[in-house]
Amino acid sequence: MKNTNSTFKSITAAFLSLTLAGCSSTAAVSSSASSSTGVNMNLANPEKLDCSDLVKPDLDLSNATGVLADVLEEGVLTVATSPDYPPAEWVDDNGTIYGHEMMIAKYIAECLGVQLEIETSDFSSTFVSVDTGKADIALSGYGLKKDREEAYEISVGYVADPESEESKHTLIVPAGQEGNYDSLDDFVGKKIMGQANSLQEMYVTDEILALDTDGTTQFEKVATLDQAILGLASGKCDAVALDNSTAENYVASSEGAFALSGVYFDLTPYGDYSGNIAIAKKGETDMIEAVNACLKTAVENGYVHTWYLNAKAAAGIQEAE
């Protein structure tokens, strides 16, 4: 955490400046006319969610139906997220909900010419928010799962960092035990923890529990990933399943308590979808088509990658050595 000390020192002042408004989590991010140069947004700039100068796709919104029509009429796009997943989305030192997925959300809102409102909840509830119409779309680090595809309209996949091993998923173990694991078979008979409804839950079920013939492997689902990390630290489990970059961060900040197992889940059975997706309520095809058009433009112009790098720097996440 060497590089991040100065960031941490400034947090005291930053949090004092927060209002005592109690629940400051529904952050309405107003669009700003101030100009930032290209995509290299200044991290110190409070208007870091600004993307008014970026190239926008040509959207034909004249025949919009469903929630897209409501969004255009009300002038507000509500996006559900669980802000516990830096650098995709988290509450930054200024109390703003920030991250590269929040930049995507802001970008989509600006492409539609509306304001962005962020609806925060825990991860499982982000789905409920979309279902009940509390939110129009949701971006919360989702990967593609079969049941998600059946239950929701899903966007095209986007990869935040094509150069990194971001889209890999792995398991971390207590330090010193990484030598015991060479393949996914070695996790059979162990106790594994992972976030409920996450991609890793699917990987563990499909690729580890499926290998288990005598039912000795235990998979315990937790609401938030930090509970699993706490479980690993306290010896409640043998391994935690999570994505590669989060794994590296937890290993780095554990000061030698955890280690990467070096074993990765095999993602080839899950089709072409790589990276993350956005979701909308089933049947809201107009909404998801608009999201797809925005995502494509944002990926093609390299915006998503830039947002990702900015968010990663703002979260104080170091490149793994």
């Binding site: 629940c23 802000p83 516990d84 990390i229 706490l230």
Partner: peptide
């Protein structure tokens, strides 16, 4: 329990700090 809904109360500070990979100290 309000922390479940990301309302800023004491339990929510756990979520805020877990984002900085501080998972047990806040408890």
């Amino acid at each position: 329990l309000a922390g479940t809904f990301m309302c800023y109360e004491l339990m929510y500070t756990r979520t805020l700090l877990a984002n900085k990979y501080l998972v047990w100290q806040p408890l």
